[in-house]
């Protein structure tokens, strides 16, 4: 065995860097035009949204219907801050502030509702997202229902790469920490988890707050790339869209969320040519996938970058169990 650090870097880092370099080269050579970049941007935002919701719903077992609400908080915070300070530090501050504000709201709503067992959180988050949307519609400084226009576009491929990969890695590491294991124990059996000393409420609130933070971050990415936001963008249907990605990929599988986000983006793009029947075909495909794979594409298994990495290192096969639930 070589130095494990070096091995990790090789197996995980090389495929990621390769991906980064390929897209960067494509952009510089003009092979990736503005439209393809916009598709990649949507994809990256959806990955962060899905992975963060999967932390709440898939790994901690708490059904949340309000992820678009956190996205809205992040988007408006980032938007307003970057309009006021249109520089890179302003943008970073906006992203962080958006994530933190979303996390704070998540914490405040999670604390009372997550003490309860059952589906209270689903209803509370549904209400929360609606309240946020209606508030944004009515307050003056967000420009109300007309929406916030002219947000400086700071996001580019570098930022998308850093933020998306960073978010997925941070959530993955969170899940592998003792906090993440507590959350998974609570999902499996709350009473059993409490009987061995896991503070169930604490574990749930912590995952929910972390998930809300990344939901807010994804909102900030959205606002900065698409430079125009309005409250209607973050309606109930947006929350459902995110949930569809999570369920399709598999509750409790981070790589499943990533794969499902890619898959849905691909389906949506290909179907773009059939304007009239597009939404019917899209829905039909979802139904077919769920009929044949009710547990989602990945169930709770993970594919690791190790599979790709092995091509470079040629190590003997390691047991490839579901990492997070091990």
């Amino acid at each position: 065995m070589a130095n494990p650090m070096v091995r990790t870097l090789l197996t995980r880092g090389v495929p990621l860097l390769l991906l980064y370099a390929v897209v960067l080269a494509g952009l510089n050579l003009g092979l990736i035009d503005d439209y393809l970049m916009a598709t990649i941007a949507t994809l990256c935002i959806n990955i962060v949204l899905a992975v963060s919701l999967n932390l709440i719903t898939g790994f901690t077992g708490q059904f949340s219907l309000g992820h678009a609400g956190f996205m809205a908080i992040g988007a408006y915070t980032t938007g307003l801050i970057t309009i006021a300070v249109p520089t890179v530090p302003g943008f970073i501050a906006g992203l962080l502030a958006g994530g933190l504000l979303a996390a704070l709201v998540g914490f405040l709503i999670g604390l009372p509702t997550l003490r309860l067992r059952g589906d209270y959180l689903a209803i509370a988050t549904l209400g929360l997202a609606e309240i946020i949307r209606i508030l944004l519609n009515n307050v003056e400084f967000t420009n109300g229902a007309a929406g916030l226009a002219g947000i400086p576009q700071m996001m580019d491929w570098n930022w998308f790469f850093i933020l998306t990969v960073g978010s997925v890695l941070l959530i993955r590491n969170f899940l592998r920490s003792s906090h993440g294991r507590n959350a998974i124990a609570v999902r499996e059996d709350e009473i059993a988890a409490e009987s061995i000393g896991v503070d169930a409420t604490r574990a749930k609130v912590l995952s929910f707050t972390v998930g809300a933070f990344f939901g807010g971050l994804a909102g900030g990415m959205y606002a900065s790339y698409f430079y125009f936001i309005k409250p209607d963008t973050f309606g109930f249907l947006k929350s459902i869209d995110i949930l569809v990605i999570v369920v399709l990929g598999g509750l409790g599988s981070l790589s499943g969320s990533v794969i499902a986000a890619v898959l849905l983006a691909a389906i949506s793009t290909v179907l773009q040519q059939f304007t009239a029947v597009r939404m019917i075909l899209y829905a039909l495909l979802l139904v077919i996938i769920m009929v044949f794979r009710p547990q989602g594409l990945m169930g709770s298994r993970e594919v690791s970058l190790r599979i790709v990495g092995r091509l470079f290192t040629r190590k003997p096969t390691e047991p490839d169990e579901p990492e997070a639930t091990r």
Binding site: Y35, L36, T39, I259, V262, L263, A265, A266, I267, T269, V270, Q272, Q273, F274, T275, L297, M298, R301, V303, I307, D320
Partner: peptide, 26 residues
Amino acid sequence: KRTAILLAAGALGLSVLAGCSAKPVT
């Protein structure tokens, strides 16, 4: 199974690129 899924995902990924260059219906 995993390999199959990976292959499927890869194929779909390629089809995004293909879909983009395809001529829209006019």
